[in-house]
Design a protein around this nucleic acid. Sequence first.
DNA 1: ATTCTTGACTATCTTTGACTAATAGTAATT
DNA 2: AATTACTATTAGTCAAAGATAGTCAAGAAT
Lengths: 156, 156
Amino acid sequence: MTDIIEAYLKKVLKQKEQVEIRRSEIAELFDCVPSQINYVINTRFTIQKGYLVESKRGGGGYIRIIKVQVLDELDMLNTMVEIVGNSITERDAKSVVQRLYDDKIITKREAKLMIVAMDKSLYTGNRVTDNRVRANLLRSMLVNLCYEEPNKRKAD
Amino acid sequence: MTDIIEAYLKKVLKQKEQVEIRRSEIAELFDCVPSQINYVINTRFTIQKGYLVESKRGGGGYIRIIKVQVLDELDMLNTMVEIVGNSITERDAKSVVQRLYDDKIITKREAKLMIVAMDKSLYTGNRVTDNRVRANLLRSMLVNLCYEEPNKRKAD
DNA sequence: ATTCTTGACTATCTTTGACTAATAGTAATT
DNA sequence: AATTACTATTAGTCAAAGATAGTCAAGAAT
């Protein structure tokens, strides 16, 4: 169900760069409880994945999902560094890398190298420590990409 | 039983590049406990044998087995994985990466990504812990370089 | 000795619904 | 006209229950 709603919203977002819904309408359309919509938004339309969400309650309330626009490669990388901050979960870190790949800032091989490095099982086992170390790693790699020549490889 | 399940999955993989199952369904189909499926996967569909496994838990969960192409550099990379072992210093780690680059197994960008990730300053500050985490990271990255996924043909 | 089978326990993701919070509309009061 | 109080209409939060898959170690089979 989550996947279906996600796909629906993404489909709309492919054509318009933002989508505005009424929570109860979408819930009815897919025959689920309204809070399911919040779940989809909280797990699939995060800032790490490049989305902003605004909403208003009460009469005429709405939920608006906006696809974040970035200027260029450098802007994207800087934005990502901010999002990473000094602590990040495995899931969010992987979302960030995936987004770089989707936007063709890194190659598939680079993305895979970075993604495996985000895996929880590689670290100390202390959640707080691990999230900090992961953020350090990811930030360093992102900053490093800022100084590199862009890829001039064939598309993959 | 293990052999039967292995044969079943391989038969499917002969026609498709990947197979996606629901663990409980297959367990029921062959009348075994669900964890048997994990055993089959862990012993028969390893990365060394050319298979990549992805999974998701919870509602709508799945296990996906993907056939991958093992690259020529496999031996070289396996040797390096052994050299890394379960603990490695920053200096030795960087040498390993440098060697990969000299041997043209990785690009310059990839090398730099890996090198920055080996830096002592990113870790916990505890030498023993750091060397272990660094080894974990480097090993995972090396293993990751051993194979290549087939081109996906999936509309999204 | 090694490989396989089993199941108890754990981890993660999704679904649901009761309760809470915010906003707009409306009617009564000043 | 402005304010207040109440009601209706949304959306948000959170925790429990449900649905999967993963791990691990003991025991069985080879």
